[in-house]
């Protein structure tokens, strides 16, 4: 039923090809006075309401950064929590302006869902959680292990591919839901628990003694969690893309929410260009000259957002890993602002 509805929605929007997608999203957002941002219904560290009812997380911070760039006010954003099934329909129908909802960037989604992925906010991938007492340091040492997975998911297929291609013996113990799978792992039904790595960090908190379990460094699948916008509005596409790149550039240049005031007087031409002291780079994408200064002042650079949401400053304690800047061995690379 859902599929039919989604297909209907896409079909209808393709036929009408009117309304939301045609008008410039930036103008609409300015007119409304706020940004409508699609997030998850609750994914620890990416988008979840805190105890005061404020949405927090890495995906949420991207939306706040876009709001800061447009309005100079990160609170001018409203969040629509979306389930995995509704998310693309909601973006398509104009319910939300940005979809920042831990969605994996794939070719078929890019091609058929009427959306464009702007940039990868978080490089995720499937990983392994094992007991420390097992003494395993790498997934290559998992020969003969029993692996708990959620049944009927791509996780199960990825595990099969990984073990077969590395000529390792394994045994799959599959369960219906995430919680059940975790309980099975905890009660010793299997030695290894596999899921997306960011999930593993969140689920590890639910174990009785989280320090007895480690997450192995290998990623066996590519899950680039990317932000998406509707097709057909290139200006809006550029804005959302460059907000992410801007936050990366700010981190690389060492501009933080703490020192951005001092950095405005920096003689460094790169920083001058970023913060709008030189050139009109913000205006070229439809924003103001000080767009990046606004973002960093109000939200922070990518590293700050990462640490606060999922990294060292949060209970999740996720390592930067693949999400480190390219200059530090990671994949996060912001094209130059010039």
């Amino acid at each position: 039923m859902k599929k039919i509805l989604t297909a209907l929605a896409l079909g209808a929007s393709a036929v009408f090809a009117s309304g939301a997608a045609d008008a410039a999203t930036l103008d609409q957002v300015k007119q409304k006075g706020f940004l409508q941002c699609g997030v998850s219904t609750g994914l620890p560290g990416f988008s979840n309401p805190d105890s005061k009812g404020e949405w927090t997380g890495l995906d949420v911070d991207l939306c706040r950064a876009v709001a800061a760039a447009i309005f100079d006010d990160p609170s001018k954003v409203r969040f629509s929590p979306l389930t995995a099934k509704d998310r693309f329909t909601a973006l398509q129908s104009g319910e939300v302006d940005i979809l920042s909802r831990n969605s994996t960037w794939t070719l078929s989604r890019d091609a058929t869902q009427g959306l464009n992925f702007t940039a990868t906010n978080y490089y995720d991938g499937q990983g392994f959680l094992v007991r420390k007492s097992l003494g395993v340091k790498s997934a290559m040492e998992l020969n003969g292990a029993s692996v708990c997975t959620q049944s009927g998911t791509t996780t199960e297929l990825n595990v099969a591919d990984f073990f077969r291609s590395n000529n390792l013996q394994y045994e799959v113990v599959a369960f219906q839901g995430q919680e059940e799978t975790l309980k099975a792992y905890e009660s010793g039904r299997c030695e290894v628990f596999t899921s997306d790595q960011s999930q593993l960090y969140a689920l590890r908190l639910k174990l009785a003694d989280k320090d007895e379990h480690v997450i192995l460094p290998e990623l066996i699948s590519k899950e680039p969690l990317a932000t998406a916008v509707r097709q057909g509005d290139d200006q809006w596409f550029d804005i959302v893309k460059w907000v992410h790149y801007g936050m990366l550039n700010a981190e690389e240049a060492g501009i933080t929410s703490q020192n951005v005031k001092d950095m405005l007087n920096s003689p460094n031409p790169d920083i001058k260009r970023m913060l709008g002291a030189e050139g009109n780079f913000g205006e070229q994408i439809g924003l103001t000259k000080d767009w990046l200064a606004r973002i960093v002042t109000k939200v922070g650079n990518y590293g700050e957002a990462f640490d606060r949401s999922v990294g060292k400053g949060s209970p999740l304690q996720i390592e930067r890993g693949k999400n480190a800047l390219w200059s530090k061995g990671g994949l996060q690379y912001g094209p130059p602002i010039r």
């Binding site: 309401p49 969140a202 908190l205």
Partner: peptide
């Protein structure tokens, strides 16, 4: 939604 708050994630 409250389950997703990492500050309260416990068994």
């Amino acid at each position: 939604a409250a389950f997703a708050d990492p500050n309260w994630a416990t068994p």
